[in-house]
Structures are given as structure tokens and as C-alpha cells.
């Protein structure tokens, strides 16, 4: 299906502004890549080209998008095998003459074409107890220093594109772990609440025992794909693992707590 004369640059065979897109088409029952030869114009991103296919060659091509500016996290897909936002991936970053593959996220069941059923994520979100604020100051105001909120603010940059969830091998390669592993996005949500300077909740046992923090082997793929460049592993997951150590593996802090409780 591919043009074999790959050594001839794109301009020679198909004119300067044509590209070969291998787009995965299919649904829950299966599917395969389909080749579309499309025109593209200067400055375009992958989503533009997908939209052109949709408008001219395949009206029923399923794809999610909203903002087209990397803000909503709707257009996640795997482009040449790597999780990317389609709206933030410029066509000019690809080698001319090469086929570009666009596939739906692998970890979630396909609904149609590039659209996957991401309800796993919404289910996991429900399992995390919400923010539990401590009382306000005596004058009715809530004061928090900027330096205290900064850590959690980094995590709140998350646009819920779910690409970290998609790339995490714990569930990507092992469907059975979906029951007891919430994925980096939601372990990070726990970190966000735990580090919130005014939160009074305790979600460390939940993270360890029910939401699978120990399954993470800190191989950092989540961090590599995050379009918001959040340091998920270094700033959320590892600090959470350290907090688990405080609680469960560090007899010194455990002893300290026991003594404090007795008093």
C-alpha cells in the first residue's frame, strides 16, 4: 500500500504539498490502518489534515477535538506510535515522504476510529475523596502563601488528555491492572490534595492499598508524554511514594506518631 520509492523526496512523486496519512479506522469489533493521500498547507498541524480527510474523503471519520490550542485535552492520539495532541503536532516535524500513522489511544477501548472510551478515567476520578478544607482564619479569610500552593498548582495544569494514562505500561500492557491502578493522572490528583496546604484529608492508605501507587515503577513515560510538561513522576509520584514510606516503612516516624498519639 505504501509507495516503495521512499528514497525519492515527496516533491518528486506527489507534488510539494501531499502527505500520506495512515489513519486507523474501525470500532469495538476491530479495524486497521487506511491510507489517505491528502494535501497539506504551510503551518498545519495533524488535526488540520485529519479534518481535511473528514471534510473531503471520509465524512464519518470519528475524531475528538475542541479547542485546537492544546488547552482542552480532547484530541489525544498516537502519532507515529507516540501519544501526542493532534492539535499541537505540526506537520513540518515529520520527514517528507514518510507515511504518518495516526492511531487511537491503545489503552482504552475504541469506540470509533480515533475516538476511544475513556470512562476508565472518569471512574477513577470518582474514587478520590474531594478537598476537605480546614477552617478559615478568624477574620473569615483564607490565607495561603504562593510558595505553598505552587506544588499543587503544577498538577492542576493537567488538561486531562489522558495520554499519561494511555502510555503507562501498568495498564497499557496489562488490562487486569485497571481494577486496582488509578494511573498517573489520578495518583497525581491525590498528590495535589495531599500537598494542598489547607487540606485535612488523608488519602495515603487509599493511594497505597486501593489505587495502586506501588504498581508504578517510576519509568517516567507519563512525564515524557505530558503535553503540559508536568513533572508527574518527580514531583507527584515519587514524593507520594516517599510519603508512603513515612507511613509504612519508617519505624522512626511511626514511633514518633505513636508517642504523639499517646499524649
Amino acid at each position: 500500500m505504501t509507495d516503495v520509492s521512499t528514497d525519492s523526496p515527496r516533491s518528486a512523486s506527489k507534488g510539494p504539498d501531499m502527505v500520506n496519512m495512515q489513519v486507523w479506522r474501525g470500532d469495538a469489533s476491530g479495524g486497521d490502518f487506511k491510507l489517505y493521500e491528502v494535501e497539506y498547507r504551510e503551518g498545519e498541524v495533524v488535526l488540520d489534515v485529519i479534518h481535511r480527510i473528514q471534510a473531503t474523503q471520509a465524512n464519518d471519520l470519528g475524531v475528538r477535538w475542541n479547542c485546537k490550542a492544546g488547552k482542552c485535552g480532547s484530541c489525544s492520539a498516537e502519532i507515529n506510535g507516540l501519544p501526542r495532541l493532534m492539535c499541537m503536532t505540526r506537520m513540518s516535524t515529520f520527514e517528507p515522504g514518510q507515511d504518518i500513522t495516526v492511531a487511537p489511544m491503545k489503552t482504552f477501548p475504541v469506540m470509533k476510529d480515533l475516538v476511544t472510551d475513556v470512562s476508565f478515567n472518569y471512574e477513577m476520578a470518582k474514587r478520590i475523596p474531594a478537598f476537605q478544607p480546614k477552617p478559615k482564619d478568624a477574620d473569615g479569610k483564607r490565607r495561603m502563601a504562593q510558595r505553598d500552593v505552587e506544588r499543587s498548582q503544577e498538577f492542576r495544569k493537567c488538561i486531562e488528555c489522558f495520554m499519561c494514562q494511555n502510555v503507562c505500561h501498568v495498564i497499557r500492557d496489562h488490562d487486569e491492572n485497571k481494577v486496582h491502578f488509578a494511573g498517573p493522572r489520578f495518583l497525581m490528583r491525590i498528590a495535589e490534595l495531599e500537598m494542598h496546604p489547607h487540606d485535612t484529608g488523608d488519602r495515603i492508605p487509599l493511594a497505597r492499598e486501593e489505587l495502586g501507587l506501588p504498581y508504578c515503577n517510576i519509568t517516567k513515560c507519563c512525564t515524557e508524554v505530558c503535553p503540559e510538561h508536568i513533572h508527574i513522576t518527580d514531583n507527584a509520584l515519587i514524593p507520594m511514594k516517599e510519603r508512603v514510606v513515612d507511613r509504612y516503612f519508617d519505624p522512626i516516624t511511626r514511633l514518633g506518631r505513636a508517642i504523639r498519639r499517646k499524649r
Partner: peptide, 18 residues
């Protein structure tokens, strides 16, 4: 706006922490 803060929003702060 203050209600959002009670629900977990983290706005940027002034020097006084507001």
C-alpha cells in the same frame, strides 16, 4: 469566587496570601 476556593481551586496569591 471564594466559594470555588472552598471547593479546591488554587488561585495565584498576593503577598498577604489572599
Amino acid at each position: 469566587v471564594l466559594e470555588l476556593e472552598e471547593w479546591g481551586a488554587l488561585f495565584d496569591r498576593t503577598k498577604e496570601g489572599l
